[in-house]
Design a protein around this nucleic acid. Sequence first.
DNA 1: AAAAACACGTGAGCC
DNA 2: TGGCTCACGTGTTTT
Lengths: 236, 236
Amino acid sequence: MTNTLTETLMNSGYGSSFSLVLDRQRGELVEAPVKLERKGVSTERTIDALKSHSEAERRRRARITAHLDTLRSLIPATTKMDKASLLGEVIRHLKELKKNAGQACEGLMIPKDNDEISVEEQGGLNGFPYLIRASLCCEYKPGLLSDIRQALDALHLMIMSADIATLEGRMKNVFVIISCKEQNFEDAACRQVLTGLVHQALRSVLNRFSVLQDILGTRKRRRVSIFSSSSSEDFL
Amino acid sequence: MTNTLTETLMNSGYGSSFSLVLDRQRGELVEAPVKLERKGVSTERTIDALKSHSEAERRRRARITAHLDTLRSLIPATTKMDKASLLGEVIRHLKELKKNAGQACEGLMIPKDNDEISVEEQGGLNGFPYLIRASLCCEYKPGLLSDIRQALDALHLMIMSADIATLEGRMKNVFVIISCKEQNFEDAACRQVLTGLVHQALRSVLNRFSVLQDILGTRKRRRVSIFSSSSSEDFL
DNA sequence: AAAAACACGTGAGCC
DNA sequence: TGGCTCACGTGTTTT
């Protein structure tokens, strides 16, 4: 594109000087109603308006293509790629990143200040008959996970995977749980009972830990935290 | 926009029927060189070409705007937003997500099959004098974290934060550790000694666990894993 | 009134 | 040659 401004202007709109217009429905050329009825407006005004209009439009296009170029630089292997295809790739990457961010944020967000237990069904994916997704946010408690595992054993459940994030003495865990026994999971009521049991089990483990922690706290004045551990109180 | 196709066609290109063109350099209207010198080509051919051309262009535009709409649906608060601004928001979100994905993947990747201990200095951020980043990948061992904390206590070190990911009986931990004592961390040799000590401490904790696990394993034939736990072997 | 945003048809250039 | 993508200027609509 080495056209000068003048060249571009001189070259544009030739086809329309036929005073003919394509009627798509009839498939033929028809006379265009020549709109010279601009009697009142002065020619200079028209020129200025036209000029500023096309210039504004040019600026708008420049803005858009600049952003498009930025996107090209952001997404790999999109140089020399079609404008539409580029946008398609942008969409693909955006969805991909959002998916990753979603599972990263959902499972591993910073633990909140308030305690939280949530248990919900997870649609039977990958041929697994029935999965439960349990989330737990509480004070940091070493050994909590093994206690939870034992509690779930009693329900004939297995922890398939666990994501654990800890920060400033608090922890957030997200488990994916599967049933060990053959059961009728088509029944919604049955499923609801199971999730209720899981919730109850997690709650009881948490309570047990809290009681234990209270005892230790009153007896030894020890605060369970990875920040200020027992022996490190001697220093700093 | 309630124009029919025909109306749109009839309305477009009126201005060009003046046979005048704006010469931007001279700032005035000049006669457009009427390009009727298409003597050889038949009118039908021209019509067909023009028709297919504009139709193709229309399809291309439709493709692009469709992608743009998809982007609008993907990114919040972009309805009724300018096309250029929309692309700007897309760029912003893309950068944001890429940044998050980067830091999420760095510390919390899926645990590998081979055991790994890595200890490295972490540039003194946030005004903290000296930080150590320790990464540990091994079999899943409940209670490992508290043992590590105790071992680090002996070195007068504190775990500031821990990211833990577990999958299929294996775990990967990433710790950020800080010194409790005032020390000369300007000296590179001193720092290297410290990281070495941390590495050694982690190794010893890991070995201790392995030995314990071996004893339990030979005596009770129990496999420590969140997949097949002791009591769940009775079912399934 | 006036500026911004959009869809349109068209000429140029590139396989 | 045809099929395509792109930038352009323009008419229309919206603000």
